[in-house]
Design a protein around this nucleic acid. Structure first.
Lengths: 195, 195
DNA sequence: GTCTATAGAAAGATAGAC
DNA sequence: GTCTATCTTTCTATAGAC
């Protein structure tokens, strides 16, 4: 069987593809457990490759982590068409995300990394560089940095309740009301240009 | 030298006192790093006792952790005189807490525990039992559970930005404005009895 | 390009001496 | 009531065979 050039194919001996499989598996794992609780063996098993290849391709677990969160917070990918919908748009992205979903979620990685000395500073730096400061620039006006930080705070609080603590209080019928209220709080930090 | 009966004394051979020293050191350590990053040896060193005594008195690291957070979220100890000041009161407790303070802060323990399978469920359970549900009962009225969850969400978000990410955006001159805004958001979840 | 084998460090827990 | 010594497991990382 020859290697096929198709992207969807799974060539068994292809460095670039193997690398991507590892990175993808790492993103999912780090979204669900803290840095220390995720083993390079676990990642390799999920990716279906040998554990030694993780270090072979990424150098160390720490560098793999850095690669995994690279670009994950980019505000541009979380923006609505119109800034007047920012609140409801951000809130929906946090709440409409199944607890058992096996996908990458940078916000969850952040929540789980704050207690790990090896990566806490790295995550904080990226979050500010990719999310908070660009958002502040988008908002503009007085205290834009502060207003962006507050929006981040509302989003992180919701994410902690929903995905960190898996609180039952924000699912089911309550979800809709919660979304509306927090979206309003966020929106009030957006529209202050008139002041 | 005889053991003195005074509470402030440091008898070198006293089970109850040694136990208390370990527990106290554990509370501080768990406030600053995740469950996995805190070693029983670290705790013992801080407490000035032998590492073997940790297991001797608490059975296991997990049981020690359970004891450490016991009662830490109790809402009663975080309430103002009047519920009309709840927002500003809660916010102040989160923001007015030095990053390098060597004190126990249950909220920080919570933030750092969400990625640790061994203790995540335990922390979530206690937080809901000691903070969210009692708060809902205090609030009363329509959607009290939801409104309590939202207040918790605002508090956790602030705590994450301030102590999890050590964000520079909420300290200094910005602190006062941030406090006022979030306090208002919280307060709007308190006063809904008229609906 | 991938895998086997293992080095080396660190952690939780425990038995038994003092 | 406390400490020394150690068992056992688990993890990252790497050298070298295939």
């Amino acid at each position: 069987m020859k290697d096929t050039p198709k992207d969807d194919a799974l060539p068994s001996r292809n460095a670039a593809h193997t690398r991507e499989r590892i990175l993808s598996a790492a993103r999912v794992r780090f979204s669900r457990q803290s840095y220390e609780n995720v083993g390079t063996r676990d990642i390799a098993a999920d990716a279906g490759v040998d554990a030694a290849l993780v270090n072979r391709y990424f150098g160390s677990k720490e560098k793999l982590f850095a690669q995994a969160i690279e670009g994950g917070f980019h505000i541009e990918e979380h923006l609505p068409d119109n800034m007047s919908n920012l609140g409801i748009h951000l809130v929906a992205q946090v709440l409409d995300n199944a607890d058992d979903s096996e996908s990458f979620d940078a916000l969850r990685v952040l929540l789980r990394a704050t207690g790990s000395p090896a990566v806490a500073a790295m995550v904080s730096e990226r979050f500010h560089a990719e999310f908070v400061r660009p958002l502040a620039k988008l908002l503009g006006g007085r205290d834009s940095e502060l207003r962006a930080a507050l929006i981040a705070s509302y989003v992180l609080g919701l994410a902690t309740m929903r995905h960190g603590l898996e609180s039952p209080s924000l699912v089911g019928p309550a979800r809709r009301k919660a979304a509306t209220i927090v979206a309003e709080a966020i929106q009030s930090c957006v529209g202050k240009k008139g002041e």
